[in-house]
Amino acid sequence: MDTDQIVPKQFLKLTSKTGYGKYLFYDWRFDSEGRPRSDFVLNDPKYAGRQILLARDNFGSGSSREHAAWAILDYGFRAVIAPSFADIFYNNCSKNGILAVRLAAEQVDYLFENHDQDISLDLPNQTVVAGNLKASFEIDEFRKKVLLEGLDSIGLTLKLGKEISAYEARNRVAPPT
C-alpha cells in the first residue's frame, strides 16, 4: 500500500495539516463520480468509528508525504498494525501521535480473520490482545516516550542548543561559498 493510495496527490495542495480525513484512500473509497464504493471496507457502516487500521506488508511505501499520516489521524485512526512499514511513513506516524505497530505476518492474518473482535493495544506494556491472540511488539524507548508523553520533539532538541553550537564550532560549519 503506497502513499499515493493513502492520499492521492490532487489533495496535497492544501497548506494546512487538518481536513485530510475525507481524502483518505480516496480512489479506493469513491468512484470517478465521487460516490462511495460499496465494496470498500471503510464504507461499511459496521466499521464506522474504528480506531485501529489493519494493513499488509510495506504499508506507506512511496513518497514522504506526511499528508498520509495526517489523513489517517484526521479520519479517526489512532494506530496502524501491519507486518512492516515503509521507513519514512513509520516516522511520520510517530511524529503525529499515531502508534504504528509491527506484528508477525501470521498475527496480522489472525487479526484480519477475526476483525470483529475488539483489539486492545497497550503501549506502556507493548502488547496487543485480541481474542486468542496475545502478542508483544517492539518500539524504541525514545519513540515510546515521545508518544506517551506527547512531547514536542523540537522543544527537546532545542534544549541541546549548546551541543549543536559546539558541533558547529568544532566543524566550522560555514555557509556554501
Binding site: S64, E66, N92, I154, T157, L158
Partner: peptide, 22 residues
Amino acid sequence: LGIGTSEVEHVLATQCLWLDRP
C-alpha cells in the same frame, strides 16, 4: 534522505535530525 513535514520543521528549527542508525 527524504523526510516528512514534521522533520522539515525540526531541521528548520534545529539544523539537526533524530535518527536511528540504518
